[in-house]
Every structure is written in structure tokens, then in C-alpha cells.
Design a protein around this nucleic acid. Sequence first.
DNA 1: TTGAAAGCGCTAACAG
DNA 2: CTGTTAGCGCTTTCAA
Lengths: 325, 325
Amino acid sequence: MTVTIKDIAKAANVSYSTVSKALNDSPLVKTGTKRVIVEKAKELGYTPNFSAKHLVTRRSNTIGLVWPTIERAALSELVTHVNKQISKNGRSMILSINDALEAVELFSRMRIDGILLFEEDIAQDELPNNLGIPLLSYGVPGINQFPTLGVQHELAMELAVNELVEKGHREIVYVGIHNGIGRRQQAKQAGFEQAMKERGFGSKIVNTGGLNAGDAEHAVTQFLDSEGTPEAIICSSYDLTIGTLRALKRHQLSIPNDVSVISYDNIPQLKETEVPVTSVGVPIDALACALVEMLIDLIEKGEENVENRKLSPVLVKRKSVKIRN
Amino acid sequence: MTVTIKDIAKAANVSYSTVSKALNDSPLVKTGTKRVIVEKAKELGYTPNFSAKHLVTRRSNTIGLVWPTIERAALSELVTHVNKQISKNGRSMILSINDALEAVELFSRMRIDGILLFEEDIAQDELPNNLGIPLLSYGVPGINQFPTLGVQHELAMELAVNELVEKGHREIVYVGIHNGIGRRQQAKQAGFEQAMKERGFGSKIVNTGGLNAGDAEHAVTQFLDSEGTPEAIICSSYDLTIGTLRALKRHQLSIPNDVSVISYDNIPQLKETEVPVTSVGVPIDALACALVEMLIDLIEKGEENVENRKLSPVLVKRKSVKIRN
DNA sequence: TTGAAAGCGCTAACAG
DNA sequence: CTGTTAGCGCTTTCAA
């Protein structure tokens, strides 16, 4: 039998409503009484029942993160930061790695306070549109029904192209999904093409077809075999960078001497590759912070009082770009 | 306002207990009534309230996974499999990446049905010892405060030695901690020695002193310098394998031509090394399956009726063992 | 400062 | 077959 406040009440010779107050540190209870109650609670090994509390208060202090793709390392760092940020806000984060639809449904049955959606592959219209729980989607705002926090991906690509061109590169290849359905990927591609076009260069794209390291490794290998070595490569995500590096290595190409590389994503792992990779992206703390802040606003102020946001990326120079003449 | 069964009851002109039964597909409700109720429920956009249900049934159908180290990608594949397995069992998995202590506490407040602990670093005695929820710990050696699912390490080594001997190797070296205190490492070493002894061979052990890649790299380098190249090497863990590979590479020894290698651990990364490494370990599906099965047993039958289990490893042949004459 | 009582949304006897 | 009723463990008025 689990211990309830009634057990504590009995042990402390008070009514259980007093116990409730005491345990919530209400000023309505005398300090002495409170002390006794807290003591008894500890003694009996009391653990509050969230479901019961939640049922009556209608607040769970819990935020659910929907993240169907844990295998992709890029976001794991962000998830960790988000978790910290949520803890700092006095709430708890739980995570589901189910499909977005199932995960959202689960969380919505659980009536948690808010949902953070990390998923770019899904057509968001598949999700219920009135789930009664604030949902913040991390991605690119578009036709979608949910509040979104995004990144100025176009600007990111502009920064990357600019850096390369400034260092004398002309023949720049983009490694990523070509004309995919994910809006984030689309935005990156568009940003790249735009930046190249503005400078009067053509855009060459290596289509990885997917977002895993292996996809890039495969596609880049093929590209190198058929088209030779480009002057520079921009990879549209961390995992694709990893795959690209493997392909380059297998071809015994050295970075940055034979080819310069810039990666999208701004996670620490990029400085721990064999050659630290120059990257463009939103610093991860800022991202985590903004994400949590915005979701909490959504929870507390309501959807109609919160505007979509877009964060600005930043260029972090490391060792993967050389100066070319 | 969220929709409750009372709203449905009103809309369908029945009592709310009938609605409850209908929604749970109880045979006690006429099919016609049921149909109407289900229809109304959909119409109103009803989502059941887990907390309320949970409170009265005392079952959440939810399993919590404690996994504080998502950045270490090694387990992510296993986590995915476990999630699938849990879904297949008609339950949901939620995940916490907090410290084990906080995560366990959270889950225990939530009164979920069971907890799966993926954490190697924590001293388990820090965890509350009577948390009232079945907890299954994966691969955590130590004072077995909690039911644990482990691996038959001795058998793993037997398999490895057998494979090498069968392929004509005689001079086999074991890379791992020599006479360390960890029970898992001890078991592996013992298994190796036993297997060699049974075949009339002596056991040569390269003592890494630690479990990091660097430890193996260092120790193996020294060994190669002083004793020359062995016919085959068995590494007692993934990380030690990585270090061993580095040492071999630095000595310009090629695998498997100059030396055969078998690694313990059966994680996907082993097939993504330069030469895919033959390994012994428990297949990931089997592991996921056993983990979930055992936890559910724990939940349904109670701790005293479930025994700790040890899974049998399997040999996965890849490219790092050659046939020797 | 404490206690009594109502009720959060739901299930599960029990009666009808 | 359907409705009534009593809680699950907790918070929160409202009285005492």
C-alpha cells in the first residue's frame, strides 16, 4: 500500500487537508504543525501522487518533448540543453520517441502543460488541430497550424557562402536533401541557391535523399567519383557533415587543403572532428533558451498573445576553410 | 473547456457511467448505444484524461525509461528497439534524461507502471530503495539492489576464442583490464582464460588498466613494440576496440591480414569502422525484447517471482577475422 | 490556525 | 443492458 496524505494525517493527528497545506508549504499552517507533518511524511516514505494532484490543479508542471529521431545526434545536444532549461524553470521534461502523431496523442491524454515538437518530416496537418495543449514546433513556420520557433536558415546559408567566397572559393557544392518535403531543409537549400545566385555562381547540389550520415557518405562518394573534387562543400546538417567527412577521407582528400567544408548546425561535436569544422547555426544555448521561454509564454499567456520567432544564426570559424587564391 | 464523459453523456442521453463502459468497449453496453456514444465522443473531440483514469485504475500503461546520457549515442539504437517493443505490448514509453535520481523520483511521483534504468555511472545505492514501482536495471553491475538483466560474458569469450581457433589462430591475445574489480570485466577475462585453457593454449593478456580507447591504444602499442604482432586479438569492449584499432593502424598492421580482431559488444558502430569488426554480444532485438519482457513480468508478477536473467551472446561475423593456415 | 466537505474525471461494484 | 453511487488522492473553498 502506498502512503497517502491520509496516512500522514493519522500519524500526525491532524486532518488531511492540513497535511495537504503543510506539504505545499502553505502559510496557513503553523510552523510547528508543519514540521511535524513534514517529518511524518518523510518517516512514512510519502511520495505525492501526481495524477491526483494534476487532476485537481489542472497543472502538471510537465513539458513533453516529441522527438522521433533520437538516432540523429544533432538534436541530442539541443535536447539536453532544453531539458536543463526546463528544469531551471521548475518543471520536468519527459520525452517520447514515438511518431509525432502517437506522441502528441499520448501527451494530450496525459494533459501535460505543453508540447515541444522536434520533427521535420511529418506533414503537420496530420496532427489534430485542436489538442487543447499548447504546442511549439521547432522548425520553419509555414502553412502550419502551430506556433513555431525557427531559424533564419536562409541567412545561415548566406553566411556560409559569404565566408567561402570571401576566402576565394568559387565552386561550392551543397550537400543535403534536394527538394525534400521538410521545410527546414527546403529553406536551407533555397538560402544556398539564393546566395550563390546573387554572386553570379551556379548552385550544385548533392542530393543525399536522407538525413543520416550514411546518406551523405554515399551521395558524396558518388559525387566525388563522377564529378571530381569541388573547392568547397556546405553540408546542411551535422550528421550529413559526418558522412561527408567519411567520404572525403575515403577519397584521401584532406581538409581544408583539398576541399573546404562548412557545416550547418552549431553543436560542440563539430569542433571534435579530426579537423574542427567551421559552421553556421544558432548557438545552442540561445536556441534552448528561446524554445523553452516561448513555450512557457504559450502556456501562460495563450497562443494568441505570442508571436512566432526566428533566431539568427552565427558563423563560427574553425579549421575547415582555407584561403584560396 | 475540455470535454469529459459527462458532456458525452449529456449529448448521448445516457448516464456517464454508460459512456465510460462504452468507451472502454465493455460488453455490458448495447452495440447501438455504444455506436452513438463513440460517435458523439468523436464529434465533441473527446480525449480521455489519463490522470483521472490512472487515479482510479492504478495502472498507467506507461513505462519510464531513465537515460541520462543521450549524447552517448551507443544506446540510442537499443532505446528505439525498446520503445517499439513496449508499444507492441500495448503500453507507452516515456523517457527522462535527467539524473537517475531525479528521473526515478519523477516517475515515481507519476506512479507509472515500471521503470527501466539505463545508467552505468551511478552508484545504485543512491536511489531510494523502496520506491514502490518495479525497476529493472540494464547492465549495471554492483550491489544488486534492483533486478538486473545482464549478459553471459563467459560465453561471449568462449564464442570469440572458438571462432578464432576454428579459423586457425593459435596465438590469441586478450585486451582488457587484467584482474580488475569490475565483475563484468572479471567475467570476460575468466571466460577467455577458461576457453584458452580448455584448448590447451596459454592466455596472454594486455592489461589496459582502464576502459577508455586511449587506455587500449597505449597498452596495445607497448605490447606490439615489445612482443611483436600476435595472430589475433580479442578486445573486451567497444571502446577498447577503437583504441586497439588505432594502435594497429599506427603500426601499419592491416586487419585481418596481419592480425585478426574480435570485439566484445554488439553495437552497430562496430560495422562502421574502417574494417567492420567481427563481434560477440547480445543482438539488439533480443536485448530489447528481454528487457521489456522482464520488466513486464516484474510489473505483473511481482519482484519476488522474477529472477535476474542473463542473455546469451552471439557471434556476428564481419571482416576482421581471416582464415589462417 | 485547523477541519469538513465538495469535487477534479474516471472506473467499478451494485442495483434496477 | 443502464443508472446510481462510492471512491481513487489531492486541492480548495468555507466554516469553525
